[in-house]
Write a protein that binds this DNA or RNA. Sequence first.
DNA 1: ATATATATTTAGGCTTACCTAAATTATTAT
DNA 2: ATAATAATTTAGGTAAGCCTAAATATATAT
Lengths: 225, 225
Amino acid sequence: MADSLTDSIQDYLKVIYELTENGSAASNTALAARLHIAPASVTGMMQKLASAKPALVEYRKHQGVTLTARGKRAALEVIRHHRLIEAWLVQTLGYSWDEVHNEAEKLEHAISEEFEERIASAMGYPLRDPHGEPIPSADLIMPEDQGIELAKLHPKQEACVQRVHAQDAGFLKHLEELGLVIGARMKVLDVSRYDQVMHIQLRGRKEAIAVGPAITNRVFVEISK
Amino acid sequence: MADSLTDSIQDYLKVIYELTENGSAASNTALAARLHIAPASVTGMMQKLASAKPALVEYRKHQGVTLTARGKRAALEVIRHHRLIEAWLVQTLGYSWDEVHNEAEKLEHAISEEFEERIASAMGYPLRDPHGEPIPSADLIMPEDQGIELAKLHPKQEACVQRVHAQDAGFLKHLEELGLVIGARMKVLDVSRYDQVMHIQLRGRKEAIAVGPAITNRVFVEISK
DNA sequence: ATATATATTTAGGCTTACCTAAATTATTAT
DNA sequence: ATAATAATTTAGGTAAGCCTAAATATATAT
């Protein structure tokens, strides 16, 4: 059971999952940065997880890590917990989307399968969390996500905000002020070739945002022809 | 802040609070038993808590421990969390009173003050948990409890079940089958002087229960003249 | 191809919170 | 009061998960 894994190990697996979603292996340095831990500590943990009774991780020195089927399942279990809890906090306790991450980060390790099932059922088995991120199903399948990076849009295209890949409270508040919330309709007006500023139409207003990792690479949209 | 205390230490403080509610000091053996830990380990922890920067515990060798004001506050914080969560699980997720203890035992360490306030507010600031146990106020005052042990009742007295001091699921289920639930009205018919069996009238039926630590010392009632 | 820079691993240490076994102190019974 | 019993403490040890500093491997630039 994933339940016999420590909080710490669950955190490692979750981050490895995220870093390997693009198909590449995760480097120890990247892991260390995300977990706020020294790189040397990551090495030790990777050796441990790779040689665990059922290995959770595939690891070769200097090559980075990937998850085994078992490790992936454990990671998805944690991610499912996290996203269900975020949805629960917003829907039943009136949290805003910028407040839920830290709370869920602790609760995800503390809830039982029973609790998971009860909140999922109470919410009618939601498919996405408050940031639009897909929630893995109870049998731990991560839904395919066909959203497109805002950065990839061309002028005149219209789209709906589907999902925001971020957790920093300040940043999320900023997006909200901008009007970039889940479901918002928007239209690209133009993109300056020189300073990479994108102008978009949002709820009747014109906003300017920089193309790059800050915003446009974190906001995913669904194009509406 | 109480939040800088580890889960383990919070558990110690909570149990010390319970064991010292009667005014006496808590023995290391009693603590060890409740925490499922070796007595020697308790000794070490008591030494640590007693010599902490702000001491959490008053401790003298072979004499047992009591809580300092600070330790008591930390204990009440954990107990408040625990009982609010139990109430929350029952009221909003349909848990039964025998299922909530273990879940709350983990969640009590994971929630923030923000979360505490939000569920308390959502429930209208309840005064008791699903077992009738009083919930410490937000400023950490434990309400006086004037309930009387069922064992102390005399024949012909009528009373309401106010509170049940127990957490074992099987035992709680048994009480429920017996009809000994919070708020139930009951009347003592007689108590056998020889085998210490108490006969009580409950929802029209006559039930026999042994006087002693199993049931009658754990069920507290409010006498209605 | 070699020097430099960066990433990673090894080695040795630390803290927390537990353990067991042995020694000590307190309690109880005679 | 003393012996037997029970409770408690001391001493020494372990496993997790982290750390820093030094060593090594890989990648990059000239």
